[in-house]
Each structure stands twice: as C-alpha cells, then as structure tokens.
Amino acid sequence: MRYALGVEYDGGGFLGWQRLAPDDAGDDPRSCTVQAVLERALSRVADGPIETVCAGRTDSGVHGLCQVVHFDSDAVRAPRGWMLGATSCLPEAVCVRWCAPVDDGFHARFSARARRYRYRILNRPVRPALGRQYLSWFRHALDADAMHRAAQALVGEHDFSAFRTVHCQAPHARRDLQRIEVTREGDEVVVDVQANAFLHHMVRNIVGSLLEVGTGERGEHWVGEVLRARDRTLAGVTAPATGLVFVGPLYPAECGLPGEVTLPD
C-alpha cells in the first residue's frame, strides 16, 4: 500500500534532505540527513526496509514546515500508527505531522503542481538572540516595497539560469514562478515564493539579489535585467540557508491530502 506523509523538520543540524550513503542514519543529526533518519524510523515501524520519495529536496540548514513524501509498504499499520510510531523513533528535530493512504498513482514529486518557500530576514542593527536558527539577519535598512516591485519581473515562465548554482543538476533552467511577495512585518522582511519547481539555490540567489535592491545599491529594474542575461555572475550573492523554510508542495484535490497541501479551488 502507498502512503503519503507530512514531515516537519528543523534542518539546522542536518546535511540536507537527501540520503547520502547507506550508513547515513546515525543518532547525531550533524552527520546525517533528514531522509535517512525518517527512513530508519519508518523501517522500525514496518519491521522492514522503507524507502521514501519527497516533493522537493532541501539543502543543509534549510527547514521544512510540511515536506510531503510517499512510500510503499506491505506492513499493515493504521495511518495513526505510522505517524506516531515513526515520530517516536525520530530525533526531536523531526516529526511526522500526518499520514494518509493514497492511490498507487500518487507521486510526492511528480503529482505536485507547485512548491512554496518562505525566507525570513530580521532587519535591524542587532543580531537575533531568540529564534536565530529560523532567521537570516541583515543590519542595513531594507525597502521591502522596492524589493517586492523588483521581484515581479520574475513572475512567469522564464529561464532562471542567473539564479541557480553552478552545481545544479537540473537538465534545464526553465521554471514557472507563479507568485513572489516581499512584505515587512515589524523588524522582519518576509519573502514568499511559489513556483512549479525550483532550481538548486534558486530562492536564496533571488533573495540575495533582492537585498541589493532593498538597500538602494541597485535599481528596481536590475533584477529583470539579470534574469534576461541568464548569467549567474551578474546576480547577487547566495543568501544564507538560515531563514529559509520549505513551506510545502501543493497537489490537486483528488489526491485526498490535507488542506494545507491542496490547491485552492
């Protein structure tokens, strides 16, 4: 039977999502990945090996609010048993929020129609003490409205070569960026991005470029010019992983998943 899970994790101590090696499942998160510890926990519940497929891999230090995975198992367990059993075997930085049986045709990656990220920047002269593992910090004043206006040049289907790392393994750089919003909430500047899919470091490179607009170092039209040039060396620096959260994917209603990962009507 095939199941889908909603997984929440603090990625600060992990080497990213993707399993690296067969022995990548130690007790110390600093030497393992989220996928490895999740598969080990599920395998204990199933009393047999379990392999998972995720909606979108995250890098070292990136957090997940509702990563969606699927797995197959012949073990007879109720969804609640998978959820609570796996969570009891996971380190404190990871939990399974929900489990749902799905059709055999469901695929965590290929069935997703969109993916969402949020990047939070504490914009004040003094670094954070509380919540610092979930915030990036930028001391210079930022114009969030200018950043938002500049970001709208990225909306639509484009070649995002200027915003992906040289190590990106995607066969092409065309992505459909469906929505990007930059807002200020007190001392925080928040960047929300939704696309059909993302390239390696794409969100962090976009944020790094928007920061240059926010300080006034670059004009609002500059981001669109960088996009059209398709040259990574022209864009801003890669923003730190701290502060980036994979909010989760979105699926068609017929997949039967919880509302937080279902496309609105």
Rank of each mutant, 00 (worst) to 15 (best):
E8C: 14
Y9N: 01
G11E: 09
G11H: 07
F14A: 03
F14M: 08
W17C: 08
Q18T: 10
A21P: 02
P22Y: 02
D24I: 09
D24K: 06
A25L: 14
D28A: 07
P29Y: 11
C32D: 09
T33A: 06
A36L: 03
A36P: 04
A41D: 06
A41Q: 09
R44S: 15
R44Q: 15
V45N: 10
I50R: 01
E51H: 05
E51I: 14
E51P: 08
T52A: 13
C54R: 02
V62R: 02
L65A: 14
V68I: 14
F71Q: 10
D72K: 08
S73V: 10
S73C: 11
A75F: 05
R77V: 14
R77W: 03
R77L: 02
W82G: 11
L84V: 11
A86Y: 05
A86G: 15
A86D: 05
P91H: 03
E92S: 13
A93V: 06
A93D: 02
C95Y: 06
C95R: 06
C99L: 04
A100I: 12
V102K: 12
F106K: 00
F106V: 03
H107R: 02
A108V: 07
R109V: 09
F110K: 03
S111A: 10
S111C: 10
A112D: 02
A112R: 08
A114E: 04
R115T: 07
N123G: 09
V126P: 01
R127N: 12
P128D: 12
R132Y: 03
F138M: 09
A144V: 05
A146H: 01
M147G: 03
M147R: 01
H148M: 00
Q152H: 06
A153C: 05
A153I: 03
V155T: 02
E157Y: 14
D159L: 12
C168S: 13
Q169D: 11
P171E: 13
P171M: 15
H172D: 15
I180D: 10
E181S: 14
V182L: 02
E185M: 04
E185S: 05
G186C: 06
Q194R: 15
N196C: 14
A197Q: 00
F198N: 11
H200D: 06
M202Q: 15
R204P: 07
N205P: 04
N205T: 08
G208L: 15
G208N: 11
E212R: 09
V213A: 07
V213D: 07
E217W: 10
R218N: 01
R218D: 01
G224D: 05
V226Q: 08
R228E: 15
R228S: 14
D231G: 00
D231S: 07
A235N: 13
G236M: 07
G236Q: 03
A241W: 08
A241H: 00
G243P: 00
F246R: 09
P252W: 10
P252A: 07
C255T: 03
C255W: 11
G256H: 09
P258R: 03
P258T: 11
G259S: 14
G259H: 01
T262K: 04
T262L: 06
L263H: 03
L263Q: 04
D265K: 05
